[in-house]
């Protein structure tokens, strides 16, 4: 790769394995779940990457590993030239303001005993010193910025609706002015009309703050809208990476094709006529992943070679695909 500047976020060979233990008194490791199993990824500053895949594919674990919420088994994460995987203790805590996260369920991630003011003020103070007299003004400014009226400043999370709570969670993540934001299913629990409001908010703020963002979601149409590029994961590995629109319109990996064809379209005439690629069975257990390309047992185009080794990456324009049968995939 010939890049003039090093990527803003550089992930190399990242692996997160969880031991599965058994036994009542003597715990023995009987297996490992390879939740994230060798991810290489580069992101430029200000870029939004959509990370999609089905439950259990490791997308959330990847997000948490990048943010050092889970210690990686192997591999490295560099943010703006600094190696996050080597940071420990105080140094890690202090650098946390550079990378923040928002979660699916804002009710579970906000302290129910803290008012909006307490929540946001704590975040503000944790990374900079602000005189107390200015604090409520700063909190109020941030509430305005995420579309909440500052007159709610003394309210508790339970007094807000789901969409408003997510706005508070977004404000809390962004008051420290991070460089990297990971949104893990941030709009999945919201109703359609509220979802659109939150997506707009995230898109606007990320532009204003030149945020680099990883947007994790199982909803492809949401990801297509907000992301510049999309990465598709299956069983701990990335199988396809490309620009959002082209990947959605012309998926190349058989798994991406199945995923895209399964997304319901809110248009009855198109929905009735289009060809749906139904996959047999469920995703296999990450504890016993199939050999070679882990998608081969469900893949309609699999050949014997697919059972042997994980396929090499193939580049087609700006697209990367981990499939060795591309010549037979329509």
């Amino acid at each position: 790769m010939s890049m003039p500047t090093p990527p803003f976020l550089k992930i190399r060979g990242l692996k997160t394995h969880f031991p599965v233990e058994k036994g009542l008194l003597v715990r023995k490791t009987v297996a490992t779940v390879k939740a994230v199993d060798g991810i290489d990824l580069d992101l430029n500053q200000g870029e939004i990457l959509g990370l999609v895949g089905e439950s259990g594919c490791g997308k959330s674990t990847l997000g948490r590993t990048i943010l050092q919420l889970i210690e990686p088994t192997q591999g490295s994460v560099h943010l703006n030239g600094r190696c996050l995987t080597e940071l420990k203790g105080k140094a890690l805590r202090e650098s946390r303001k550079d990378f923040q996260m928002i979660f699916q369920d804002p009710y579970a991630s906000l302290n129910p005993r803290m008012t909006v003011y307490d929540t946001l003020a704590e975040a503000l103070l944790s990374h900079q010193s602000i005189p107390k007299s200015e604090l409520s003004q700063r909190v109020g400014q941030w509430m305005n910025r995420v579309g909440l009226s500052p007159r709610f400043i003394k309210k508790y999370p339970h007094e807000f609706s789901g969409g408003q709570r997510q706005r508070i969670a977004i404000a809390r993540a962004l008051v420290v002015e991070p460089k990297l934001l990971i949104a893990d299913e941030a709009v999945s629990a919201l109703d359609v009309s509220i979802q659109a409001q939150i997506i707009n908010l995230l898109a606007r703020l990320s532009k204003e703050m030149n945020l680099t963002m990883i947007f994790i979601s199982h909803d492809l149409s949401v990801v297509k809208h907000i992301a510049d590029r999309i990465a598709v994961m299956y069983l701990g590995r990335m199988v396809e990476l490309g620009s959002a629109e082209s990947l959605f319109d012309h998926p190349r990996h058989p798994y991406t094709q199945a995923l895209v064809s399964a997304v319901p379209i809110p248009d009855p005439s198109r929905e009735r006529t289009r060809r749906r690629m139904l996959l047999p069975g469920d995703p296999p257990s990450p504890m016993h992943p199939p050999s070679g390309c882990s998608f081969h047992p469900r893949c309609p185009h699999a050949a014997d070679a697919c059972q042997v080794a994980f396929p090499e990456w193939v580049r087609e324009g700006d697209r990367s695909i981990a499939c060795s049968r591309l010549e037979v995939v329509p």
């Binding site: 659109a196 707009n200 949401v222």
Partner: peptide, 16 residues
């Protein structure tokens, strides 16, 4: 109108 699937990319989503 607020469904992302039906809206052009890059534009603000329609909201209620």
């Amino acid at each position: 109108r607020s469904i992302p699937a039906l809206q052009a990319k890059g534009q603000e989503l329609f909201t209620i």
